[in-house]
Structures are given as structure tokens and as C-alpha cells.
Amino acid sequence: MQSSSNSGLDIGLVVGGGAVAILGLRRGGPLGLAMTALGAGAAAYGARNTAVARQLPVRRALEAPIEVTRAVTVERSFEEVWRFWCEPSNLSQVLPRVTHIEELGGDVWRWTADFPGGEREWETDVARDQAQRIFSWNTRPDSRFMTSGFARFADAPGGRGTEIVLRLNYRPPFGPIGKAAGWFAKTPIGLEMAAGLSRLKQMLELGEIATIQGQPSGRSAT
């Protein structure tokens, strides 16, 4: 919900929140600290649409979708990599959390993935541009959350195969708090994307994925 001018509620939040913050500072102690944090938070939220706030990098960062990029080089030809990428069952095998991808026709894919909160499904439009060597996707307009991205392919120099650049954009739910959480999630998401690209590389170069799942250790002592 974006409004170009400050509503009465926003002004109230700035004034009221500021007052609570000052009272908290004067009071001191754990309760005072909590009051200061809460008041300052409310005031900052109320001031979010002011001209000054709009210029703040944090504010701009919160509004923009979060973007994570990872890349890998696979010692295989573009054609082979492209063929692999465009097959949903291959992607669901290597991409993190994704358990199933279904082609619904008309370049719409339905994704199913496991998240800490449970299984989730969403649909995306996909665009395959083999000539430009780019594969992109975008969540359907009626989705509960937004994610988009692309995989771009290029010949690696010196006959080293194909470079893949994977970019993921996402806009987490739950407003500014969700966005802040999403910002902190960049590192683990980047790790998961890197792990996915590493598995993709292994499938293409080896036809298998290196694993230690099922090996013995003292943790499974008999």
C-alpha cells in the first residue's frame, strides 16, 4: 500500500511513537529500553512516506525486490546445458527445496517446494529464448508472493564449457518485517543457489551427485 502523502495515522505514529521513545529514554532499565525501541519503530514507520525517508538507501532497499546472483561454469556445450535446463524433472532434481515442477502448458510451470513452514506451490510464466541464451521466469500476477529470475548462458573462454549466471529476485510477504527478514536470508539463499548450481554441474559432468548421505559414522553407532 503506497500513499504519496502522509495520512493522519502516520502523523500520529510519528508524534506518539516519538513521545513513547523519549519517555522510555527517561525511564531507563529494560522496560524503558523496550519503550524506546517500540516508540522509535512506530515513529520510523509513520515517517516512511516523507520526502526524506524516500531518499534513504535502507528505504529504497526495502522497496526493491531482493536480488541474489550466483554463477558456475560447466564443462559441457551450451546445447547440452540448455537441454538439461529446459527439462523440469532435471531442474527439480538439482534446485534447492524444489521437489516437483509440472508443465501446465502455455509456458506456465507449477513449482512445488519444501520450506520450513511446510510445502508450498506457485505458478510462473517461463520464457525460453535459446537464441539469446536466456531462460527467465516470473510468478503469475495472482501469486501470494513474487519471485522472478533468469538463467543466462554463455560460452566459457578456452573451451571450458558453458558459464551459467543464475539470478533470483524475490519480494517476501509480511511488509517491512518480512523484507528485513528476506534481506538477512540473502546469505542462506545464496548458499542454497550455489549448492543447486553445484548439483547441476555434477549431474551434467558426472551423471551423479556426490554424496555422503547413508555413510557410517559414530552418530549412527550400533
Binding site: L206, E208, I209, A210, T211, I212, Q213, G214, Q215, P216, S217, G218, S220, A221, T222
Partner: peptide, 15 residues
């Protein structure tokens, strides 16, 4: 460090 009894390893990948 300890010497322990653990399960035997098995083939996990075909290579």
C-alpha cells in the same frame, strides 16, 4: 577419539 562400532559402509553412487 574413541574406537566405536558403527554400521558398515555401502555403495551410495555407482562409481
Amino acid at each position: 577419539l574413541r574406537v566405536e562400532h558403527v554400521p558398515d559402509p555401502k555403495i551410495l553412487n555407482q562409481t
